[in-house]
Write a protein that binds this DNA or RNA. Sequence first.
DNA 1: CAGATGACAGATATTGAAATCTGTCACCTG
DNA 2: CAGGTGACAGATTTCAATATCTGTCATCTG
Lengths: 195, 195
Amino acid sequence: MAPPAETLTAERILEATEEVLRRHGPAKATVVDVARALGVSHGSVYRHFRTKAALREAVTKRWLDRTSQRLAGIAGATDRDPATRLREWLAALFDAKRHKAGDDPELFATYTVLTDEYGSVVGEHIEDLVTQLTEIVAAGVATGAFTADPRPAARAVFHATGRFHDPGYAREWQRPGVDEEFTAVVDLLLRGLTR
Amino acid sequence: MAPPAETLTAERILEATEEVLRRHGPAKATVVDVARALGVSHGSVYRHFRTKAALREAVTKRWLDRTSQRLAGIAGATDRDPATRLREWLAALFDAKRHKAGDDPELFATYTVLTDEYGSVVGEHIEDLVTQLTEIVAAGVATGAFTADPRPAARAVFHATGRFHDPGYAREWQRPGVDEEFTAVVDLLLRGLTR
DNA sequence: CAGATGACAGATATTGAAATCTGTCACCTG
DNA sequence: CAGGTGACAGATTTCAATATCTGTCATCTG
């Protein structure tokens, strides 16, 4: 059922777009470049994505979804105790972001531009993450470990840790002492949640 | 001892610079404009500020200091109980920022550009604010209301409330529901601090 | 005939020459 | 002679012409 390798699919276009963005950056990456990379005319790209914006948006969504999926594994590990899971989930989010930002700063900057462009996609991603957090908090409430209204509490935890996952703070993630700051905030939040 | 009104002082240059920034914005405000507004040659401005950057930095500092001074009043009100003082201080910070951003968005954008340019001035301003918070937390620890190491706890509170005072989030401050989000975060933090 | 093409019009970006600005300094002036 | 000036060199910005890109669509082809 999988189409032959040479068939032009949305998937192949997205991969080529990621590569073009990596090479040229967000300002210079054009639809013509993507078409050239695939060896087709740019008109063909427009058969799969109505506009350049739609294409960039789809690439952005893909990138964010990869992070969500990684974290979903931790949120769903219902065998572990909620406090630990919350800590690990937040640490994993911080770690994922910090590595993305530190390992390839240019690519990270590229995606930061894209996420700024497509606020609604980011909004959905955040709702997704808050839902994962809600799952953990709700588990804690069920256990009796936490006292809280899960959804608003999860949202508060997400907002309170913004410094450790919002791309706007990426510069700070390299500085010494951030880990202590992270731990201090998470400790304080966990004390606030704990019965 | 106060110099006559027509004497060129650093103070008068700073006032003129604020006005020029308000009128022309950060990108188009030039030293020549400032000199023109004061009716002097631009060489005279350079007698008081070594570079354009030094002038802009001084204006930025003045602007930040005005906020610090307002908040210092609340932090220093040692007659009131620490938990209330902490809430009021954070609410006052949020309120001050939100009004600056909402009442004159262009001027706020101008100063956001300036604060991005002069990170060290912002750093000092933040240290100043964290010191004020530390004072409140320490008072709470003395009372027995809070359990915490005042300085790191104050820093954690500051970081955890970044969403409600960092200019990068200014867009969010207009949205409905932010007040509830603010209250949720502050409640959680206060629960964490409280013995 | 489904899918690809490339010519085209209007929008956007690039480029380089001209204009303006920054920072210095030798020289005024009250 | 303290404080101010304006001409100047080099850096930066502006602006208009030129080039490139986006999105459409009539046409082509396997």
